[in-house]
Design a protein around this nucleic acid. Sequence first.
DNA 1: ACTATCCAAATAATCGATTATCTGTCAAGG
DNA 2: CCTTGACAGATAATCGATTATTTGGATAGT
Lengths: 245, 245
Amino acid sequence: MVPDDDGAFAPTTEDAPSSSGFLDDGKNTIGSQLASRLREAIISGELQAGSKINLDKARKTFNVSLSPLREGLARLISDGLVEFEDNRGYRVSSISLANLEEVTTLREEFEVFALRESMRLGDVEWEGNVMRALHRLNRTERDAARPETLERWEELHREFHLTLISGCGKPILLHFCRLLLNLNDRYRRVFLTRTSGDRNVSQEHSEIAQGAVARDLDYSCDMLRQHIHRTGTNLRNHLATKGIL
Amino acid sequence: MVPDDDGAFAPTTEDAPSSSGFLDDGKNTIGSQLASRLREAIISGELQAGSKINLDKARKTFNVSLSPLREGLARLISDGLVEFEDNRGYRVSSISLANLEEVTTLREEFEVFALRESMRLGDVEWEGNVMRALHRLNRTERDAARPETLERWEELHREFHLTLISGCGKPILLHFCRLLLNLNDRYRRVFLTRTSGDRNVSQEHSEIAQGAVARDLDYSCDMLRQHIHRTGTNLRNHLATKGIL
DNA sequence: ACTATCCAAATAATCGATTATCTGTCAAGG
DNA sequence: CCTTGACAGATAATCGATTATTTGGATAGT
């Protein structure tokens, strides 16, 4: 008997349930704190995609020394948000149509696969977590006029999708999905402040979640796939419209 | 005891993957070189799975300073070979039955998916690369008595699998597959010095490759899936036999 | 003009030393 | 005995300074 499934990616230090996590992250190392701040800065678009990260400026901006700065940046590489090249330093990962399409495709494949596995293996606690995440998400307004509500909604949305697949018992797969969600969220944070009129996203989430808890594999997986696909299409349109590429 | 009869910059036989593999030529940083050496040390089993990595000892062993050491280790995290925890340092990722099974399952899913995409999208150059990788692999003997042949074979084997899926046009997916191969190879390097009698691995590779070039999607994908699955089964048996877990 | 070569400023990488944190041990108090 | 807390040694994290590499621009030769 193996003590615990401590797979390669098992620990994943980061998120405790967002609601209850207060103090524990207050006293991480500087490197960790930086990683969080930088991650948020990148996903939110504060740090422009593709831009070079000047270590000296960053050092001054964040008021830290080089060691923890490099430490923090190194971690974002595993998140796919930062790229690195020897002697040339770090830069924020670029966004592109091709990248968006790959992210969408892979999410369709992997997230759906993970959901299927969750439905196959998840226990009652997983079901409960799914319903809770759904409820919290659907009870949260997204008001384009108040940015803090957008951030809050994004957080809960992310949490919902991760909870949905959290029962799959496959830490590496979860790591991949988390990474893809990071990349995906960056597009949405930059380009979407509201959903296109013809979608009822709350209902989509509900259908997926209820199907999942009812173990209706084909239905729920299909809903999730469509959900991801639609988001991809929307994002692609916005990307094209705003003529970034 | 660390007599420094060293060569921190020791020429080391580990030259770049043969002819046209990667671009890491002589002009790497210490951090990069360390990452390579450590990666090899972990995959080959020289550094025991699950063991803690004492920074001070490692620093002396490799005759480097802390900064590049951390740098190198940080990169192995993205490879899934090293885990990290704040204020507790780094450790070599554990191996376990659960982990092996996940790696195998995910390889079946992702690598097969990537192969399908490669067959759909790959161009003539991709076909050529596949045939070359196949030829070089099949022309290389694997002699359990001479470890260097094993290493060489592993390298070419890895190269073959990566080439096979290199036409898929999906960099993130390729990254995932590379990572999974790393994890998988570690099990094989530790547990398999020869294939079980009832397999003709060369032929398996040939069938996959030829089917791929002929764009026989279903056939080739099926062969690859079985190939991966068999390897997983073999490894699991060895793992159980040698009673590691 | 056009390229090649060589400097100097900018930037990245590394080092040695210092500071913060953890971990085991041992003694005092319950 | 068992727990608690303080100490010391081990280990990780961070800093400031130094060294190496890259890059842009000026200069000389064709």
